Simulated assay, not measured.
Amino acid sequence: MATVDDPPPGWSSKPEDLEYEDDWEAEDSMAQEICEELNIGRGRPIMYDCTISCYLFEAGGKFYLWDCVGYGVFEITSPKTLDGIIKTMKEKGDDAL
């Protein structure tokens, strides 16, 4: 599981905040079922923002945002690297992705 040492404000990469065992580990977890439905491969959480209930995760070599409230999953097409995504989030906010 990728970790982010210095996440953007509001985001956490702490294992307890990612709820890995509950939301990601099991094949029949909600996150894995969504990834399977989208045919993007097994998802791995990277960060979670509890204020907006959103995960940043990786699947199949690509990065996604999962809006847990609206159940939307959005592929991040630019930037394509985790470092670039974190930098953009810090400098311009989540909406810049």
Rank of each mutant, 00 (worst) to 15 (best):
T3K: 12
V4R: 10
D5E: 13
D6G: 00
D6K: 01
D6I: 02
P7M: 10
P8N: 06
P15H: 08
P15C: 05
E16I: 11
D17L: 13
L18M: 05
E19K: 10
D22E: 13
D23T: 03
W24L: 13
E25P: 04
E25V: 06
D28H: 14
S29D: 08
S29N: 05
M30L: 11
Q32W: 07
Q32V: 06
I34E: 15
I34K: 15
I34R: 14
E36V: 09
E37F: 15
L38G: 11
N39S: 14
R42C: 13
R42I: 14
G43Q: 14
R44C: 11
R44V: 13
I46S: 10
M47R: 04
M47S: 10
Y48W: 03
C50T: 02
C50L: 03
T51I: 05
T51G: 02
S53D: 14
C54N: 08
Y55V: 10
F57Y: 09
F57L: 04
G60H: 12
G61N: 05
K62A: 12
K62H: 12
F63E: 08
W66S: 04
D67Y: 09
C68A: 02
V69C: 08
V69F: 07
V69L: 13
G70Q: 14
Y71K: 11
Y71I: 04
T77I: 05
P79D: 10
P79M: 09
T81G: 09
T81W: 10
G84K: 09
G84S: 09
G84F: 07
I86G: 05
I86W: 03
I86F: 02
K87E: 12
T88P: 00
M89G: 09
E91A: 01
D95V: 01
D95P: 01
L97G: 01
